[in-house]
């Protein structure tokens, strides 16, 4: 496969080792992540699936440097991001986050949003950044909307622009937290195709949290199913469907089989999570 030959040049291998995170906002310790380990190869699309509130986002926040971890360590390409000595990773443009609710700055146009990263990092001059931002937006099919504010475009366009804003910084890893959650099925399809197209072009490592199992299998190289809180790796399913994938893939026999396999594992956890939720309410 073409992917394997280029693996050596690719960057963005994430190694998550025995990570534990304990919150204590009310004096009662809540264990969000418990001794969770995962290896994500460079240039891999890694999908994280698990019940709501299980600690997936906590893991993402730790990688991005929004939160500290209590135990364990996370390495990126062999370099320590956070570990016992440094519980909180430093935020950096090599790990770009695309947020659940979308976080384009509403007071900047799409072009200004995309140009923001290179400008503040002083990688490009403001005018060069604007020019490159405009180009990249045009490549993503948003050429007519570069002067629009995020509030003026559809959620699908805003999400695509947000991914462009991330990619302009040449990140090693793209961290996506249920980015297509609130979208209708048709928009989602287009988003998936656009993300796959972007992936094929850039080969960036993708860490993608989702609840949508079909999305997970369709996009991912590996699907990591995690347990309900505290979050641990339960099962890894490898998706050996060749790329480029198209929408017909979803009706193939292989795809259906994988879906059943993933569904079995997730369903068990979802039931557990639901029962735990009932107990907490009672």
């Amino acid at each position: 496969m073409a992917k394997n030959t280029s693996k050596t040049e690719k960057k963005g291998a994430l190694s998550i080792k025995n990570v534990t995170k304990i919150y204590d906002p009310t004096g009662v310790n809540v264990m969000a992540v418990d001794n969770c380990s995962m290896e994500i190869a460079a240039g891999e699309v890694c999908m994280i699936v698990g019940p709501s509130g299980c600690g997936k986002t906590t893991l993402l926040n730790a990688i991005a440097g929004f939160h500290s971890i209590t135990e364990g360590s996370i390495h990126l390409d062999g370099e320590l991001l956070c570990g016992p000595e440094r519980p909180k990773a430093e935020q950096s443009a090599e790990r770009m986050v695309v947020f659940q609710h979308g976080a384009l700055f509403p007071w900047k146009t799409l072009q200004e949003n995309v140009a923001y990263g290179p400008t503040v990092q002083k990688a490009l001059s403001p005018s060069q950044a604007m020019e490159k931002g405009g180009q990249m937006l045009a490549e993503a099919g948003l050429g007519n909307f570069i002067k629009k504010f995020p509030g003026e475009v559809s959620s699908g366009m805003a999400r695509r622009a947000e991914i462009v804003r991330a990619l302009i910084n040449n990140p090693k890893v793209l961290l996506l937290d249920e980015p297509y959650r609130a979208m209708d099925a048709l928009t989602k399809q287009i988003m998936h195709e656009s993300l796959l197209e972007t992936y094929d072009r850039t080969g960036v490592t993708i860490f993608f949290i989702t609840h949508d199992l079909e999305e997970a299998i369709f996009l991912g190289d590996k699907v990591h199913i995690v347990t309900t809180r505290p979050c641990q790796l339960k099962k890894t399913v490898e998706v050996k469907i060749p790329r480029p994938r198209s929408y017909e893939t979803q009706s193939s026999e292989k795809f259906r089989k994988l879906l059943v396999e993933v569904n079995d594992a997730v369903h068990e956890e979802a039931v557990k999570a639901f029962k735990a939720g009932e107990r907490e309410m009672a």
């Binding site: 443009a93 986050v97 947020f99 609710h101 503040v120 991330a166």
Partner: peptide, 17 residues
């Protein structure tokens, strides 16, 4: 929204940015 601060941090902003 806290996410704007996080996004700005990710994008490599200084505190003044």
């Amino acid at each position: 929204d806290e996410e704007y601060f996080r996004a700005a941090g990710c994008l490599g902003s200084s505190r003044w940015d």
